[in-house]
Design a protein around this nucleic acid. Structure first.
Length: 279
DNA sequence: CGCTCCACCTGAACGC
DNA sequence: TGCGTTCAGGTGGAGC
């Protein structure tokens, strides 16, 4: 499910409930998600205070008062909800609960269990196997057209596949890659090394524009994504291509042309694009 | 190493 | 109504 804008929406939603709050009780209902929970997960969290919530790529990092960090990845279907006080009985796939001294009740639900959690030792973030190979944050100072240019050099994989590679730039997924390529007017099938400076500059700008707009809309809700209050995200209404196979291209329509969005499969995943303005 | 494919898991949507 | 098939926002390991 969640790409950078959805994860950032969840992080922002969690701030008022978790920053400065003590975890007075942690309820863990199964031993694993995609990976096993860390050893003694509950006892290592109970009594800890959360100092800050940060985000790296699609990971939420909870910085704890003992220097350790709780790392959360939502996988495809992970959801975090915040309740005031004790919510009614738990439902299927409610795998984890955090009770704070707030008292806010934070619940992690993940039907497909592609999510994962881990504990990172103090100062261990840069060595962590899930984090160490990540590329730059697309909304951070380390990301630029030059970074893309270097990453694209010599790569004959299509732009779609290269932008999904978290080592190139961290946080994009299937939706926002499709949308960014459309906004930049680039064919998803173009071998990365063939993209010239001009196109790369457009792509760089498009990525930032799309992500900022999506965060402002609370992310995109297709099936699973919810904000932490249960509210939907709204960016799906602004999609130009994603999920719009057979519908008309909005930017072509502005130029007085009628063209239809197409769907192809690249590295096993749907790509939506306009064959005319992404020529 | 570069690249593609597949499995991991559940549920929703669709066709018959 | 029910059953089988397909697909889904991610990721890492297998395999070529």
């Amino acid at each position: 499910m969640p790409e950078l804008p959805e994860v950032e929406t969840v992080r922002r939603g969690l701030i008022p409930a978790l920053e400065g709050a003590k975890l007075v009780e942690v309820v863990q209902r199964r031993k694993d998600l995609r990976k096993p929970f860390p050893e003694n997960f509950v006892s290592r969290l109970e009594g800890r205070t959360v100092l800050r919530l940060e985000r790296r790529a699609k990971y939420i990092m909870c910085v704890l008062d003992d220097g350790w960090e709780l790392l959360i990845h939502l996988g495809m279907s992970g959801k975090v909800r915040i309740f005031e006080g004790n919510p009614e009985d738990y439902q299927a796939h409610d795998h984890l609960e955090f009770v704070t001294d707030g008292p806010k009740w934070i619940r992690y639900n993940d039907p497909r269990r592609f999510g994962l959690m881990d504990l990172i030792a103090p100062m261990g973030r840069s060595q962590h196997p899930l984090l160490r190979d990540l590329g730059p944050e697309p909304l951070g100072d380390d990301f630029s057209a030059e970074v893309l240019e270097k990453a694209f050099a010599g790569k004959k994989a299509p732009l779609k596949a290269v932008l999904l590679d978290q080592r190139v730039v961290a946080g994009l997924g299937n939706i926002y890659v499709c949308e960014a390529l459309h906004r930049a007017g680039l064919a998803p099938t173009l071998p990365a090394y063939q993209a010239d400076k001009d196109r790369i500059e457009r792509l760089y700008l498009a990525i930032g524009d799309i992500l900022r707009a999506a965060i402002a809309a609370g992310g995109s809700s297709l099936r699973d994504h919810r904000q932490t209050d249960g509210e939907l995200g709204y960016f799906q209404h602004q999609f130009d291509v994603y999920g719009r196979e057979g519908e008309s291209c909005k930017s072509c329509a502005k130029d007085g042309r009628t063209t239809l969005i197409e769907r192809i499969v690249q590295s096993g995943r749907s790509t939506f694009y306009c064959p005319v303005c992404q020529g």
